[in-house]
């Protein structure tokens, strides 16, 4: 059973998650048909910057985050930004979009100059997230849990981060049982995606350098 306090926490996280989205004028540009390779590069960079800003605003609303050591806050955000961005993008791809939008978006990414060996695992990840059919609360909590991962590089006070992450894991576990009574392994599957995300994060630096060379 989810307690009253846990419900309040869940609502807070979900509201913050929904409130902080990439501005529409930025996302609209993604669907414009004509673009040169350089415009594409600039646009994807603008998108990434916007995603990080949105992510920071969301994170500020996670109860207790701003009470952490300031440098630890930066270490957590720096360590998780790429993973949180992959999660958010995965959700964009698993949502039902108007006709043709998914194709335009996918084409843009494929033409970004990122090599195929990185594109394939990325789209495989998007697909595996889509297959989970997460509810919004699960998406928001999973993002918060990703950000509050204590063992990121340069984090000094692991215990303080753990204390913030644990209640989120607890609510998510209960929510999974309630939302997916037929799938006892659902929570474990969600945590498995976090491992996949770590792998993607690991290859991201390589992906960036291959992109730059291209």
């Amino acid at each position: 059973e989810i307690t009253k306090e846990q419900r309040a926490l869940m609502k807070l996280i979900l509201d913050a998650y929904n409130r902080h989205q990439i501005p529409q004028d930025v996302t609209k540009k993604l669907l414009q048909d004509q673009y040169s390779a350089e415009e594409n590069f600039l646009l994807l960079t603008e998108m990434a910057t916007s995603q990080v800003q949105v992510l920071v605003e969301f994170t500020k609303n996670i109860p207790g985050f701003l009470s952490l050591d300031h440098e630890d806050q930066i270490a957590l955000l720096k360590g998780s930004a790429v993973e949180a961005m992959f999660l958010r993008s995965a959700q964009v791809f698993s949502r039902k979009m108007p006709n043709g939008h998914t194709e335009v978006l996918e084409e843009r990414i494929r033409k970004s100059g990122i090599s195929e060996e990185f594109i394939t695992p990325m789209f495989n990840f998007y697909k595996s997230i889509g297959e989970l059919h997460m509810v919004q609360e699960e998406q928001a909590l999973l993002t918060a849990i990703t950000i509050l991962t204590p063992d990121r590089p340069y984090v000094k006070d692991h215990l303080a981060v753990e204390r913030l992450q644990e209640p989120m894991l607890d609510v998510l576990r209960k929510l999974c049982v309630l939302q997916h009574p037929q799938e006892p392994q659902y929570f474990a599957r969600l945590l498995g995606r976090l491992t996949e995300l770590r792998t993607l994060n690991h290859y991201h630096a390589e992906m960036l350098s291959s992109w730059r060379m291209n």
């Binding site: 910057t49 800003q53 500020k60 930066i74 955000l77 930004a81 630096a205």
Partner: peptide, 21 residues
């Protein structure tokens, strides 16, 4: 790594500022 410098910059600025205002 150099590739992360931009990221840290954006994070620091966003943590200081307030987009909601």
């Amino acid at each position: 790594p150099a590739s992360n410098l931009g990221l840290e910059d954006i994070i620091r600025k966003a943590l200081m500022g307030n987009l909601e205002e």
